[in-house]
Design a protein around this nucleic acid. Structure first.
Length: 293
DNA sequence: TAATGGTCCTGTTTGC
DNA sequence: TGCAAACAGGACCATT
């Protein structure tokens, strides 16, 4: 499940192997994978051909390829925006490699080197061509304008996020997953951060002290940094592999997916509770349920 | 079978 | 009380 660390691993792979190259051919095999590109698959393909990838960027779980070679040099630039959803992968492979079952989009380059493949089993992810806009001193694709800065952003301001979080009237895990508040955190790292901060997911945000909210955000930042290190270490430089299995951070998870296993801190069996039609993992002793649920 | 989950969409509730 | 904003929850997918 790609969250911030996994997406950053992919971005680094793209930076190393795609930046500077010129797109020569684009094939869309599943229209749903470019559904956010409103003018449609044909337009998407046509407008990418001949463009050079200038740089690779990321905010939260979104990543994008800044494009050059625009006919209108005075206009703000454009970018290929990508989101991996739950099962999306961006793979760099020799053109001769057999097509994957769930190959959705293929980008070939003018240099005939490795091609970029968007493979996505569940088609929750997708690609689109977007205008770049200026927001709060940053240049981002239009659909990313409302996404908050992530904890690895040099301009991330934790004090502002703490204030905004405490102003909300919701459960703390919902706030962690709110990409407009702070981006990049998904179900896995939310559970890990809550465990580190000793908070139950249902704790109300407006009852958190500033110190506790800050501790939680620090924990989220820390766990994602550790995961990035683990994912990067096992990363194969020849292939951009987003699959969560490729990194080895999975064995460092304290609670996520660990139902019944001992809490690394106190030994109590980890519990699983339904949360938003999915699961939340926590330690019953370290993270007691709030009194008024 | 039910579980998986990030985002989008819609209907409801809350706060001013 | 009326309105807008905030919030909660389901839909979307494919596979095991």
């Amino acid at each position: 499940m790609p969250e911030l660390p996994e997406v950053e691993v992919v971005r680094r792979g793209l930076e190393a192997h795609v930046a500077g190259r010129v797109i020569a051919e684009v094939e869309v095999f599943h229209p749903r994978s470019v559904r956010r590109h409103v003018p449609g698959p044909v337009d998407f393909s046509a407008r990418l051909v001949g463009r050079r990838v200038q740089a690779t960027r990321r905010r939260g779980k979104y990543l994008w390829l800044e494009l050059g070679g625009d006919a209108h040099a005075d206009e703000p630039g454009e970018a290929v925006l990508g989101h991996l959803g739950m099962s999306g992968q961006l793979l760099l492979q020799p053109p001769a490699t057999v097509d994957q079952t769930h190959l959705r989009v293929r980008l070939r380059f003018a240099d005939a080197g490795p091609e970029l493949r968007f493979v996505d089993q569940r088609t929750f992810g997708g690609l689109s061509l977007e205008d770049l806009v200026e927001v709060d001193g940053a240049t981002v694709p239009r659909p990313v304008a409302h996404i908050g800065r992530d904890p690895m952003d040099p301009a991330f301001d934790i004090a502002t996020v703490v204030r905004a979080m405490r102003r909300k009237h919701t459960e703390v895990k919902r706030a962690l997953l709110d990409q407009t508040l702070v981006s990049g955190i998904g179900n896995i790292y939310a559970d890990e951060a809550l465990w580190r901060a000793r908070l139950h997911w249902a704790r109300p945000t407006d009852k958190l002290s500033s110190a506790k909210a800050r501790e939680l955000l620090d924990a989220a930042t820390q766990v994602m940094n550790e995961a990035l290190g683990a994912g990067g270490t096992s990363f194969d430089a020849l292939y951009v592999n987003v699959n969560g299995q490729s990194g080895y951070f999975e064995r460092s998870l304290a609670v996520y997916g660990q139902e019944g296993m001992p809490c690394p801190r106190c030994g109590r069996p980890i519990r699983r509770e339904p949360f938003m039609n999915r699961s939340s993992y926590s330690c019953p002793r370290c993270q007691p349920r709030p009194r008024a649920a």
